[in-house]
Amino acid sequence: FEAKWDHASTLKKVIDAVKDLIGDTSWDCTNTGMSLQSMDSSHVALVHVLLKSEGFESYRCDRNVSMGISLNSMAKVLKCAGNDDSVTLRHESESSVVNFAFESHKEERVSEFELKLMNIDTEHLGIPETEYDSIIKMPSADLRRTCADLSQFGDSVTISCAKSDVRFETSGDIGTGNVRLSARGSSDKPETEIAIEMINPVSLTFALKYLNFFTKAAPLSDTVKLCMSNNHPLCVEFPMPEVGYIRYYLAPKIDE
């Protein structure tokens, strides 16, 4: 297996966006790309990352391989790469390590690191295809700000989606807060658009702590998609055009 990115910045951001939620995980490498799927330790959230082979500078995977890696260790290794350095990952069949090589574009500095792989029991679990009742596309910075603002007032947020607006509400010891975002089109700047596709109205409550973890992916994508169905996990997708995506799933709070 050998994969090369032209710039380390994307991989650094991907790892930063998921490492606080999941610790040790397996990267599954096939000829179509690298992916990981992992639940957080409390089984409330699920992370799915896909990095497509066409998003790499060069990519080769002769035999499918599952590499067990501590994401904190991977973040440490990637700290040694400059944002504009190229990154090459190499793993040979049956080897217990993965190699990282960072090269500056003027080629005057090359650094190499070897990370020990871990044995991780991988369960063969899958994410079902779901038809959602409401899908909201919005700027990722808006979601990040909304979750950060409401976190000052409460631990959880109720997201209610109607035909032309979406409302985020919270309440806590010091008071209450809500943010309403109305659908708006923008043909010249699609990344600032707020689009709502509503088949059925949805209202769900989630722990803000997790949503704040998810919005760490905002630097990777100008837009985010919230897909919701009543009593069903929320899907928060950060698309990375031509590269892949990060999808987070979060179980709703259900009244006992």
Partner: peptide, 14 residues
């Protein structure tokens, strides 16, 4: 425990 059940039911064995 309830969240866990929702997520465990969603994320199923294949």
């Amino acid at each position: 425990a309830i969240f866990q059940k929702v997520m465990d039911d969603f994320y199923v064995a294949i």
